[in-house]
Amino acid sequence: MVRQTIILPVLLATAFNVTAAPKPEAVTTLQAQWAQSATQQPFSAKRGAELWRKDGIVQKGNVVRCTTCHGEDLSQQGKHARSGKVIEPMAFSANPDRFTQIKKIKKWLKRNCKWTWGRECTAQEKGDLIEYLVSQ
């Protein structure tokens, strides 16, 4: 009986928590750093999702967004708009290697915010975007 009372809640918790995999350490570390400079709200996956689809600058006659290269479905591979290079899925659930290296996250956020929006992202935006991607 004692054992059951322990096991049941654990099982239930596992069953309902399948989608909420723990955040990689790199993400918690970075978000803690960004939270210090971002005075605004807690990071939100919902805002991140909006940013992910937000119109960026015009490149070669086309408005670009994150989805221009990463595709509409985060669990699928994307394709770079210019080079055609295959980009592995961004969804953390589909690609557990994602968001595990601080250096790599910082590098690509810097490059791709400039590519897509023509400027670096704010700490709030970075935190929201990663919150969204990790939740997928």
Partner: peptide, 8 residues
């Protein structure tokens, strides 16, 4: 070549 490939 038109892409941002900056590195630390």
């Amino acid at each position: 070549f038109g892409e941002n490939a900056e590195l630390d």
